[in-house]
Nucleic acid binder design. Structure first.
Lengths: 213, 213
DNA sequence: GCCGCCATCGGGGATGACCCTGGTTGATCC
DNA sequence: GGATCAACCAGGGTCATCCCCGATGGCGGC
Protein backbone atom coordinates (compact mmCIF):
# COMPACT_ATOMS: atom_id res chain seq x y z
CA UNK A 1 0.00 0.00 0.00
CA UNK A 2 2.39 2.66 -1.18
CA UNK A 3 -0.18 5.15 -2.44
CA UNK A 4 -3.35 5.52 -0.43
CA UNK A 5 -6.59 4.76 -2.17
CA UNK A 6 -8.43 7.96 -3.13
CA UNK A 7 -11.99 7.77 -1.82
CA UNK A 8 -15.02 10.00 -2.39
CA UNK A 9 -18.04 9.88 -0.07
CA UNK A 10 -21.63 10.55 -1.09
CA UNK A 11 -24.28 10.54 1.60
CA UNK A 12 -27.04 12.99 2.40
CA UNK A 13 -26.23 12.90 6.11
CA UNK A 14 -23.28 15.14 6.91
CA UNK A 15 -22.84 13.38 10.24
CA UNK A 16 -22.40 10.07 8.54
CA UNK A 17 -19.84 11.54 6.14
CA UNK A 18 -17.93 12.91 9.12
CA UNK A 19 -18.03 9.51 10.70
CA UNK A 20 -16.61 7.84 7.63
CA UNK A 21 -13.84 10.42 7.40
CA UNK A 22 -12.97 10.04 11.06
CA UNK A 23 -12.96 6.28 10.89
CA UNK A 24 -11.02 5.60 7.72
CA UNK A 25 -9.47 8.96 6.84
CA UNK A 26 -6.15 7.82 8.21
CA UNK A 27 -6.01 4.70 6.06
CA UNK A 28 -7.31 6.11 2.78
CA UNK A 29 -7.31 9.53 1.22
CA UNK A 30 -10.75 11.15 1.33
CA UNK A 31 -10.72 13.42 -1.72
CA UNK A 32 -14.19 14.82 -1.25
CA UNK A 33 -17.64 14.34 0.21
CA UNK A 34 -21.02 15.71 -0.81
CA UNK A 35 -24.65 15.21 0.06
CA UNK A 36 -26.57 15.49 -3.20
CA UNK A 37 -26.80 13.82 -6.55
CA UNK A 38 -25.96 16.88 -8.62
CA UNK A 39 -22.93 17.88 -6.57
CA UNK A 40 -21.73 14.30 -6.63
CA UNK A 41 -21.70 13.98 -10.40
CA UNK A 42 -19.76 17.21 -10.83
CA UNK A 43 -17.30 16.59 -8.02
CA UNK A 44 -16.61 12.99 -8.95
CA UNK A 45 -15.87 13.97 -12.53
CA UNK A 46 -13.48 16.61 -11.22
CA UNK A 47 -11.64 14.57 -8.60
CA UNK A 48 -11.61 11.21 -10.37
CA UNK A 49 -11.38 9.18 -7.17
CA UNK A 50 -10.42 5.51 -7.10
CA UNK A 51 -13.49 4.50 -5.16
CA UNK A 52 -16.82 6.21 -4.50
CA UNK A 53 -18.70 5.27 -1.36
CA UNK A 54 -22.25 5.74 -2.45
CA UNK A 55 -25.38 5.95 -0.35
CA UNK A 56 -28.30 4.25 -2.06
CA UNK A 57 -31.07 6.39 -0.68
CA UNK A 58 -30.65 10.04 -1.65
CA UNK A 59 -33.07 12.74 -2.68
CA UNK A 60 -33.42 13.14 -6.46
CA UNK A 61 -32.84 9.64 -7.69
CA UNK A 62 -30.48 8.10 -5.18
CA UNK A 63 -27.23 6.34 -5.91
CA UNK A 64 -28.54 5.02 -9.18
CA UNK A 65 -28.95 8.52 -10.54
CA UNK A 66 -25.28 9.18 -9.86
CA UNK A 67 -24.17 5.95 -11.48
CA UNK A 68 -26.25 6.70 -14.53
CA UNK A 69 -25.07 10.30 -14.55
CA UNK A 70 -21.46 9.24 -14.57
CA UNK A 71 -22.27 6.56 -17.09
CA UNK A 72 -19.03 4.93 -18.10
CA UNK A 73 -17.09 8.18 -18.21
CA UNK A 74 -14.72 7.12 -15.48
CA UNK A 75 -13.66 3.53 -16.08
CA UNK A 76 -11.07 3.65 -13.29
CA UNK A 77 -13.51 4.88 -10.68
CA UNK A 78 -15.32 2.07 -8.90
CA UNK A 79 -18.48 2.62 -6.94
CA UNK A 80 -19.21 0.80 -3.72
CA UNK A 81 -22.78 1.11 -2.51
CA UNK A 82 -23.09 1.68 1.21
CA UNK A 83 -26.60 1.54 2.54
CA UNK A 84 -28.74 0.89 5.56
CA UNK A 85 -31.07 -1.11 3.36
CA UNK A 86 -30.67 -4.78 2.68
CA UNK A 87 -33.72 -4.90 0.40
CA UNK A 88 -33.22 -6.99 -2.71
CA UNK A 89 -34.58 -4.26 -4.97
CA UNK A 90 -32.06 -1.76 -3.72
CA UNK A 91 -29.18 -4.14 -4.14
CA UNK A 92 -30.17 -5.26 -7.61
CA UNK A 93 -31.02 -1.78 -8.79
CA UNK A 94 -27.70 -0.27 -7.87
CA UNK A 95 -25.71 -3.21 -9.17
CA UNK A 96 -27.57 -3.02 -12.45
CA UNK A 97 -26.67 0.62 -12.64
CA UNK A 98 -23.02 -0.31 -12.38
CA UNK A 99 -21.91 -0.44 -8.74
CA UNK A 100 -19.12 -2.91 -8.10
CA UNK A 101 -20.17 -3.82 -4.63
CA UNK A 102 -22.76 -3.35 -1.95
CA UNK A 103 -22.26 -3.37 1.79
CA UNK A 104 -24.53 -2.37 4.62
CA UNK A 105 -23.72 0.36 7.12
CA UNK A 106 -23.44 -2.20 9.90
CA UNK A 107 -20.00 -2.93 8.50
CA UNK A 108 -16.94 -2.49 10.73
CA UNK A 109 -14.05 -0.17 10.01
CA UNK A 110 -11.77 -3.04 9.01
CA UNK A 111 -14.35 -4.67 6.79
CA UNK A 112 -15.04 -1.38 5.07
CA UNK A 113 -11.36 -0.77 4.41
CA UNK A 114 -11.02 -4.27 3.06
CA UNK A 115 -14.08 -3.76 0.85
CA UNK A 116 -12.67 -0.47 -0.48
CA UNK A 117 -9.33 -2.07 -1.30
CA UNK A 118 -10.94 -5.03 -2.97
CA UNK A 119 -13.26 -2.91 -5.09
CA UNK A 120 -10.32 -0.74 -6.04
CA UNK A 121 -8.45 -3.89 -7.09
CA UNK A 122 -11.29 -4.77 -9.42
CA UNK A 123 -13.07 -7.30 -7.27
CA UNK A 124 -16.74 -7.27 -6.42
CA UNK A 125 -17.69 -7.04 -2.78
CA UNK A 126 -20.90 -7.89 -1.03
CA UNK A 127 -22.16 -8.29 2.43
CA UNK A 128 -22.42 -12.05 2.21
CA UNK A 129 -26.14 -12.28 2.63
CA UNK A 130 -26.78 -9.82 -0.18
CA UNK A 131 -24.83 -11.67 -2.82
CA UNK A 132 -27.62 -14.20 -2.99
CA UNK A 133 -30.08 -11.58 -4.20
CA UNK A 134 -27.90 -10.71 -7.11
CA UNK A 135 -27.41 -14.30 -8.07
CA UNK A 136 -31.10 -14.99 -7.84
CA UNK A 137 -31.92 -12.07 -10.07
CA UNK A 138 -29.14 -12.97 -12.42
CA UNK A 139 -30.02 -16.62 -12.77
CA UNK A 140 -33.36 -15.19 -13.83
CA UNK A 141 -34.14 -17.56 -11.23
CA UNK A 142 -37.57 -17.87 -10.81
CA UNK A 143 -39.13 -20.95 -10.73
CA UNK A 144 -39.26 -21.99 -7.17
CA UNK A 145 -42.61 -23.11 -8.20
CA UNK A 146 -44.39 -23.38 -4.91
CA UNK A 147 -47.04 -20.86 -5.85
CA UNK A 148 -50.16 -21.25 -3.78
CA UNK A 149 -52.20 -19.09 -6.15
CA UNK A 150 -50.98 -20.98 -9.16
CA UNK A 151 -51.78 -24.32 -7.55
CA UNK A 152 -55.42 -23.42 -7.34
CA UNK A 153 -55.57 -23.36 -11.13
CA UNK A 154 -56.09 -26.53 -13.12
CA UNK A 155 -53.51 -27.69 -15.64
CA UNK A 156 -55.51 -26.37 -18.53
CA UNK A 157 -56.13 -23.05 -16.86
CA UNK A 158 -52.42 -22.56 -16.26
CA UNK A 159 -51.75 -23.33 -19.90
CA UNK A 160 -54.27 -20.75 -21.05
CA UNK A 161 -53.00 -18.25 -18.49
CA UNK A 162 -49.49 -18.42 -19.87
CA UNK A 163 -50.60 -17.91 -23.46
CA UNK A 164 -52.93 -15.05 -22.60
CA UNK A 165 -50.24 -13.39 -20.54
CA UNK A 166 -47.95 -13.54 -23.56
CA UNK A 167 -50.43 -11.48 -25.50
CA UNK A 168 -52.15 -14.09 -27.63
CA UNK A 169 -55.77 -13.40 -28.51
CA UNK A 170 -58.44 -15.88 -27.52
CA UNK A 171 -58.57 -17.07 -31.11
CA UNK A 172 -54.83 -17.67 -31.23
CA UNK A 173 -54.87 -19.52 -27.93
CA UNK A 174 -57.76 -21.64 -29.19
CA UNK A 175 -55.82 -22.58 -32.31
CA UNK A 176 -52.70 -23.33 -30.34
CA UNK A 177 -54.26 -25.73 -27.87
CA UNK A 178 -56.84 -27.03 -30.33
CA UNK A 179 -60.06 -26.12 -28.61
CA UNK A 180 -62.81 -23.65 -29.47
CA UNK A 181 -62.66 -19.96 -28.66
CA UNK A 182 -65.54 -20.47 -26.27
CA UNK A 183 -63.53 -22.94 -24.22
CA UNK A 184 -60.71 -20.46 -23.97
CA UNK A 185 -63.16 -17.83 -22.77
CA UNK A 186 -64.37 -20.21 -20.06
CA UNK A 187 -60.84 -20.93 -18.88
CA UNK A 188 -59.90 -17.27 -18.85
CA UNK A 189 -63.01 -16.49 -16.84
CA UNK A 190 -62.07 -19.13 -14.27
CA UNK A 191 -58.53 -17.83 -14.05
CA UNK A 192 -59.66 -14.24 -13.57
CA UNK A 193 -62.18 -15.28 -10.93
CA UNK A 194 -59.75 -17.50 -9.02
CA UNK A 195 -57.00 -14.89 -9.03
CA UNK A 196 -59.46 -12.08 -8.36
CA UNK A 197 -58.36 -10.11 -11.38
CA UNK A 198 -60.65 -8.14 -13.61
CA UNK A 199 -59.13 -8.32 -17.07
CA UNK A 200 -56.33 -9.73 -19.15
CA UNK A 201 -54.10 -6.74 -18.60
CA UNK A 202 -54.03 -7.34 -14.89
CA UNK A 203 -53.40 -10.96 -15.69
CA UNK A 204 -50.37 -10.02 -17.77
CA UNK A 205 -49.10 -7.85 -14.93
CA UNK A 206 -49.71 -10.64 -12.45
CA UNK A 207 -47.80 -13.13 -14.57
CA UNK A 208 -44.95 -10.73 -15.28
CA UNK A 209 -44.68 -10.08 -11.58
CA UNK A 210 -44.13 -13.75 -10.94
CA UNK A 211 -41.97 -14.21 -14.01
CA UNK A 212 -44.13 -16.95 -15.40
CA UNK A 213 -43.24 -16.11 -18.96
CA UNK B 1 -19.18 -26.55 13.55
CA UNK B 2 -20.91 -29.29 15.46
CA UNK B 3 -22.12 -31.31 12.48
CA UNK B 4 -19.70 -31.50 9.59
CA UNK B 5 -20.88 -30.18 6.25
CA UNK B 6 -21.83 -33.01 3.90
CA UNK B 7 -19.98 -32.55 0.63
CA UNK B 8 -20.30 -34.31 -2.72
CA UNK B 9 -17.52 -34.13 -5.32
CA UNK B 10 -18.04 -34.24 -9.08
CA UNK B 11 -14.95 -34.25 -11.30
CA UNK B 12 -13.96 -36.41 -14.22
CA UNK B 13 -10.43 -36.85 -12.91
CA UNK B 14 -10.32 -39.49 -10.21
CA UNK B 15 -6.96 -38.21 -9.07
CA UNK B 16 -8.40 -34.79 -8.40
CA UNK B 17 -11.28 -36.28 -6.42
CA UNK B 18 -8.77 -38.20 -4.36
CA UNK B 19 -6.87 -35.02 -3.76
CA UNK B 20 -9.94 -33.18 -2.55
CA UNK B 21 -10.86 -36.02 -0.22
CA UNK B 22 -7.33 -36.18 1.19
CA UNK B 23 -7.15 -32.45 1.69
CA UNK B 24 -10.50 -31.65 3.24
CA UNK B 25 -11.93 -35.05 4.16
CA UNK B 26 -11.01 -34.47 7.76
CA UNK B 27 -12.85 -31.16 8.01
CA UNK B 28 -16.01 -32.00 6.09
CA UNK B 29 -17.87 -35.20 5.40
CA UNK B 30 -17.40 -36.41 1.83
CA UNK B 31 -20.61 -38.28 1.13
CA UNK B 32 -19.76 -39.31 -2.39
CA UNK B 33 -17.74 -38.61 -5.48
CA UNK B 34 -18.36 -39.43 -9.12
CA UNK B 35 -16.88 -38.60 -12.51
CA UNK B 36 -19.83 -38.26 -14.87
CA UNK B 37 -22.95 -36.18 -15.33
CA UNK B 38 -25.40 -39.07 -15.23
CA UNK B 39 -23.93 -40.64 -12.13
CA UNK B 40 -23.84 -37.26 -10.46
CA UNK B 41 -27.53 -36.51 -10.90
CA UNK B 42 -28.55 -39.88 -9.52
CA UNK B 43 -26.10 -39.89 -6.64
CA UNK B 44 -26.78 -36.31 -5.60
CA UNK B 45 -30.51 -36.94 -5.50
CA UNK B 46 -29.84 -40.00 -3.36
CA UNK B 47 -27.37 -38.51 -0.89
CA UNK B 48 -28.79 -34.98 -0.64
CA UNK B 49 -25.46 -33.38 0.28
CA UNK B 50 -25.20 -29.88 1.73
CA UNK B 51 -22.72 -28.73 -0.88
CA UNK B 52 -21.72 -30.11 -4.27
CA UNK B 53 -18.24 -29.33 -5.54
CA UNK B 54 -18.79 -29.24 -9.22
CA UNK B 55 -16.26 -29.36 -12.01
CA UNK B 56 -17.34 -27.12 -14.88
CA UNK B 57 -15.75 -29.08 -17.70
CA UNK B 58 -17.14 -32.59 -17.89
CA UNK B 59 -18.06 -34.85 -20.79
CA UNK B 60 -21.76 -34.76 -21.71
CA UNK B 61 -22.72 -31.23 -20.83
CA UNK B 62 -20.46 -30.28 -17.96
CA UNK B 63 -21.51 -28.86 -14.66
CA UNK B 64 -24.40 -26.99 -16.22
CA UNK B 65 -26.04 -30.24 -17.29
CA UNK B 66 -25.98 -31.40 -13.68
CA UNK B 67 -27.43 -28.15 -12.37
CA UNK B 68 -30.17 -28.28 -14.94
CA UNK B 69 -30.77 -31.96 -14.29
CA UNK B 70 -31.24 -31.33 -10.61
CA UNK B 71 -33.37 -28.31 -11.39
CA UNK B 72 -34.67 -26.97 -8.11
CA UNK B 73 -35.40 -30.40 -6.69
CA UNK B 74 -32.97 -29.96 -3.85
CA UNK B 75 -33.35 -26.47 -2.43
CA UNK B 76 -31.03 -27.26 0.48
CA UNK B 77 -28.20 -28.47 -1.71
CA UNK B 78 -25.89 -25.67 -2.86
CA UNK B 79 -23.52 -26.07 -5.76
CA UNK B 80 -20.05 -24.57 -5.76
CA UNK B 81 -18.32 -24.62 -9.13
CA UNK B 82 -14.68 -25.59 -8.96
CA UNK B 83 -12.78 -25.22 -12.18
CA UNK B 84 -9.41 -24.69 -13.76
CA UNK B 85 -11.01 -22.17 -16.09
CA UNK B 86 -11.37 -18.52 -15.30
CA UNK B 87 -13.12 -17.76 -18.60
CA UNK B 88 -16.04 -15.37 -18.27
CA UNK B 89 -18.32 -17.62 -20.30
CA UNK B 90 -17.75 -20.54 -17.98
CA UNK B 91 -18.40 -18.48 -14.91
CA UNK B 92 -21.52 -16.85 -16.23
CA UNK B 93 -22.92 -20.04 -17.69
CA UNK B 94 -22.69 -22.02 -14.53
CA UNK B 95 -23.99 -19.18 -12.36
CA UNK B 96 -26.94 -18.73 -14.65
CA UNK B 97 -27.65 -22.42 -14.30
CA UNK B 98 -27.88 -21.99 -10.56
CA UNK B 99 -24.46 -22.43 -8.96
CA UNK B 100 -24.01 -20.40 -5.80
CA UNK B 101 -20.33 -19.81 -6.22
CA UNK B 102 -17.33 -20.30 -8.42
CA UNK B 103 -13.73 -20.78 -7.39
CA UNK B 104 -10.68 -21.84 -9.34
CA UNK B 105 -8.61 -24.90 -8.56
CA UNK B 106 -5.68 -22.76 -7.55
CA UNK B 107 -7.52 -22.26 -4.28
CA UNK B 108 -5.86 -23.31 -1.04
CA UNK B 109 -7.25 -25.84 1.39
CA UNK B 110 -8.30 -23.18 3.87
CA UNK B 111 -9.93 -21.02 1.24
CA UNK B 112 -11.85 -23.97 -0.13
CA UNK B 113 -13.11 -24.94 3.30
CA UNK B 114 -14.17 -21.37 3.91
CA UNK B 115 -15.92 -21.24 0.55
CA UNK B 116 -17.77 -24.48 1.27
CA UNK B 117 -18.93 -23.23 4.64
CA UNK B 118 -20.05 -19.91 3.24
CA UNK B 119 -21.97 -21.48 0.37
CA UNK B 120 -23.58 -23.86 2.81
CA UNK B 121 -24.60 -20.88 4.92
CA UNK B 122 -26.38 -19.38 1.93
CA UNK B 123 -23.74 -16.89 0.83
CA UNK B 124 -22.35 -16.58 -2.67
CA UNK B 125 -18.63 -17.14 -3.08
CA UNK B 126 -16.30 -16.14 -5.87
CA UNK B 127 -12.66 -16.03 -6.52
CA UNK B 128 -12.41 -12.26 -6.29
CA UNK B 129 -11.42 -11.65 -9.85
CA UNK B 130 -14.31 -13.67 -11.21
CA UNK B 131 -17.05 -11.77 -9.45
CA UNK B 132 -16.46 -8.91 -11.85
CA UNK B 133 -17.48 -11.04 -14.81
CA UNK B 134 -20.79 -11.79 -13.26
CA UNK B 135 -21.45 -8.17 -12.46
CA UNK B 136 -20.45 -7.08 -15.94
CA UNK B 137 -22.76 -9.59 -17.53
CA UNK B 138 -25.52 -8.65 -15.15
CA UNK B 139 -25.21 -4.93 -15.62
CA UNK B 140 -24.69 -5.38 -19.34
CA UNK B 141 -27.75 -7.54 -19.69
CA UNK B 142 -29.89 -4.45 -19.35
CA UNK B 143 -28.89 -1.54 -21.48
CA UNK B 144 -29.86 1.71 -19.81
CA UNK B 145 -31.20 2.97 -23.11
CA UNK B 146 -31.73 6.47 -24.26
CA UNK B 147 -34.34 5.71 -26.82
CA UNK B 148 -34.25 6.62 -30.47
CA UNK B 149 -37.64 4.98 -30.97
CA UNK B 150 -39.12 6.88 -28.09
CA UNK B 151 -37.85 10.17 -29.48
CA UNK B 152 -39.92 9.76 -32.58
CA UNK B 153 -43.06 9.98 -30.48
CA UNK B 154 -44.57 13.31 -29.57
CA UNK B 155 -44.94 14.32 -25.92
CA UNK B 156 -48.59 13.45 -25.89
CA UNK B 157 -48.03 10.13 -27.55
CA UNK B 158 -45.45 9.14 -24.96
CA UNK B 159 -47.87 10.09 -22.23
CA UNK B 160 -50.60 7.94 -23.72
CA UNK B 161 -48.14 5.13 -24.35
CA UNK B 162 -47.19 4.94 -20.70
CA UNK B 163 -50.78 4.82 -19.52
CA UNK B 164 -51.83 2.23 -22.08
CA UNK B 165 -48.82 0.08 -21.22
CA UNK B 166 -49.92 0.13 -17.61
CA UNK B 167 -53.20 -1.43 -18.61
CA UNK B 168 -55.55 1.52 -18.51
CA UNK B 169 -58.49 1.39 -20.93
CA UNK B 170 -58.91 4.10 -23.52
CA UNK B 171 -61.69 5.58 -21.42
CA UNK B 172 -59.51 5.70 -18.32
CA UNK B 173 -56.66 7.29 -20.22
CA UNK B 174 -59.07 9.84 -21.67
CA UNK B 175 -60.30 10.78 -18.21
CA UNK B 176 -56.80 10.97 -16.84
CA UNK B 177 -55.41 13.35 -19.45
CA UNK B 178 -58.72 15.16 -19.96
CA UNK B 179 -59.35 14.53 -23.64
CA UNK B 180 -61.96 12.48 -25.47
CA UNK B 181 -61.72 8.73 -26.02
CA UNK B 182 -61.44 9.40 -29.73
CA UNK B 183 -58.32 11.45 -29.21
CA UNK B 184 -56.78 8.67 -27.22
CA UNK B 185 -57.57 6.27 -30.05
CA UNK B 186 -55.79 8.58 -32.47
CA UNK B 187 -52.69 8.79 -30.29
CA UNK B 188 -52.59 5.05 -29.75
CA UNK B 189 -52.88 4.48 -33.48
CA UNK B 190 -49.94 6.80 -34.09
CA UNK B 191 -47.86 5.08 -31.46
CA UNK B 192 -48.59 1.63 -32.84
CA UNK B 193 -47.80 2.77 -36.35
CA UNK B 194 -44.56 4.53 -35.41
CA UNK B 195 -43.30 1.62 -33.34
CA UNK B 196 -44.55 -0.91 -35.85
CA UNK B 197 -46.59 -2.79 -33.31
CA UNK B 198 -49.95 -4.32 -33.94
CA UNK B 199 -51.84 -4.06 -30.67
CA UNK B 200 -51.69 -2.84 -27.11
CA UNK B 201 -50.36 -6.12 -25.79
CA UNK B 202 -47.25 -5.83 -27.90
CA UNK B 203 -47.04 -2.26 -26.72
CA UNK B 204 -47.07 -3.43 -23.12
CA UNK B 205 -44.33 -5.94 -23.90
CA UNK B 206 -42.34 -3.25 -25.70
CA UNK B 207 -42.60 -0.90 -22.77
CA UNK B 208 -41.81 -3.57 -20.21
CA UNK B 209 -38.78 -4.53 -22.24
CA UNK B 210 -37.46 -1.00 -21.97
CA UNK B 211 -38.58 -0.60 -18.39
CA UNK B 212 -40.62 2.50 -19.12
CA UNK B 213 -43.06 1.75 -16.35
C1' DG C 1 -75.97 -43.75 -7.73
C1' DC C 2 -75.52 -39.04 -6.71
C1' DC C 3 -72.49 -35.03 -6.27
C1' DG C 4 -68.70 -32.16 -7.34
C1' DC C 5 -65.02 -30.84 -10.29
C1' DC C 6 -62.98 -30.56 -14.71
C1' DA C 7 -62.88 -29.86 -19.68
C1' DT C 8 -65.41 -29.03 -23.51
C1' DC C 9 -68.75 -26.17 -26.23
C1' DG C 10 -72.73 -22.89 -27.33
C1' DG C 11 -76.03 -18.33 -27.62
C1' DG C 12 -76.55 -13.65 -26.65
C1' DG C 13 -75.10 -9.26 -25.37
C1' DA C 14 -72.44 -5.16 -23.55
C1' DT C 15 -68.35 -2.95 -23.86
C1' DG C 16 -63.61 -2.26 -25.43
C1' DA C 17 -59.99 -2.13 -28.94
C1' DC C 18 -58.54 -0.86 -33.35
C1' DC C 19 -58.85 1.01 -38.10
C1' DC C 20 -60.42 4.15 -41.69
C1' DT C 21 -61.79 8.50 -43.33
C1' DG C 22 -62.71 12.59 -42.42
C1' DG C 23 -62.43 17.58 -39.80
C1' DT C 24 -60.49 22.11 -36.91
C1' DT C 25 -57.06 24.73 -34.47
C1' DG C 26 -52.61 26.71 -33.55
C1' DA C 27 -47.60 26.88 -33.92
C1' DT C 28 -43.48 26.84 -36.83
C1' DC C 29 -40.69 27.15 -40.92
C1' DC C 30 -39.44 28.99 -45.29
C1' DG D 1 -49.01 33.08 -47.49
C1' DG D 2 -48.62 28.30 -48.07
C1' DA D 3 -46.86 23.96 -46.22
C1' DT D 4 -46.22 21.07 -42.36
C1' DC D 5 -47.17 19.07 -38.12
C1' DA D 6 -48.97 18.31 -33.29
C1' DA D 7 -53.06 18.00 -30.89
C1' DC D 8 -57.69 17.67 -30.79
C1' DC D 9 -62.31 15.55 -32.18
C1' DA D 10 -66.20 12.60 -34.78
C1' DG D 11 -68.73 8.74 -37.30
C1' DG D 12 -68.87 4.13 -38.55
C1' DG D 13 -67.27 -0.38 -38.89
C1' DT D 14 -64.98 -4.97 -37.44
C1' DC D 15 -63.32 -7.84 -34.26
C1' DA D 16 -61.87 -8.98 -29.32
C1' DT D 17 -62.94 -9.22 -24.64
C1' DC D 18 -65.75 -10.50 -20.93
C1' DC D 19 -69.96 -11.45 -18.84
C1' DC D 20 -74.47 -13.79 -18.41
C1' DC D 21 -77.02 -17.81 -19.17
C1' DG D 22 -76.84 -22.63 -20.34
C1' DA D 23 -75.23 -27.91 -21.94
C1' DT D 24 -72.51 -32.51 -22.29
C1' DG D 25 -69.33 -36.18 -20.88
C1' DG D 26 -65.66 -37.99 -17.86
C1' DC D 27 -63.67 -39.00 -13.49
C1' DG D 28 -63.37 -39.71 -8.62
C1' DG D 29 -65.33 -39.74 -3.75
C1' DC D 30 -68.68 -41.26 -0.43
Amino acid sequence: MTARVRVFVVDDHALFRSGVKAEIGDAVEIVGDVGSVDEAIIAIRATKPDVVLLDVHLPNGGGRAILEGLASDLPDTKCLALSVSDAADDVIGVIRAGARGYVTKTITREELLDAIRRVHAGDAVFSPRLAGFVLDAFAGSVPVTSDPDMDRLTQREQEVLRLIARGYTYKEVAGRIHVSVKTVETHVSSVLRKLQLSNRHELTAWATDRRLL
